Simulated assay, not measured.
Amino acid sequence: MSKRVVVLDYGFGNVRSAVRALEHVGADVELTGDRRAALEADGLLVPGVGAFAAVNAGLEAIGGGSIVDQRLAGGRPVLGICVGLQVMFETSTEPGDGVKEGLGQWPGTVERLPAQVVPHMGWSTVQPPAGSVLFDGVEDERFYFVHSYAVQRFDFVDTTAGRVQPPQVTWAEHGVRFVAAVENGALTATQFHPEKSGDAGAQLLRNWVASLG
Rank of each mutant, 00 (worst) to 15 (best):
P119W: 12
G102F: 11
E94T: 05
D136Q: 14
H120Q: 15
E94I: 01
M121S: 10
G102P: 05
G104Q: 07
P95L: 04
G137Y: 15
V87L: 08
L103Y: 04
W106E: 03
V83Q: 00
G75D: 03
G98P: 06
L134T: 07
C82F: 07
F89K: 00
G131K: 07
V118R: 10
V126W: 06
S132Y: 09
V133R: 15
L134F: 11
Q116L: 13
P95N: 06
T109H: 09
E111L: 10
L103N: 01
W123Q: 08
R76S: 05
Q127V: 09
G131H: 11
L85A: 02
T109Y: 08
G96F: 10
T109Q: 14
V87W: 02
W123H: 11
E111I: 04
Q105D: 02
V83Y: 01
L134Y: 11
C82Q: 04
V117R: 15
T125E: 13
M88V: 01
G102A: 09
P95I: 04
P107V: 04
F135M: 06
V126S: 05
S124I: 04
V87T: 01
E111N: 11
G108F: 12
K100M: 04
P114D: 10
A130K: 12
Q116F: 15
V126H: 05
S132N: 07
P114T: 08
Q86K: 00
V117N: 10
G75R: 06
F89T: 00
S132H: 11
V118Y: 11
G98C: 06
W123N: 07
E139G: 06
G84I: 00
M121T: 12
E94F: 07
T91R: 15
G131T: 03
L85Y: 03
T93P: 10
P128K: 05
P95A: 02
P107L: 05
V133N: 09
G137H: 14
A130Q: 14
G80F: 00
P77F: 02
P129K: 08
D97G: 13
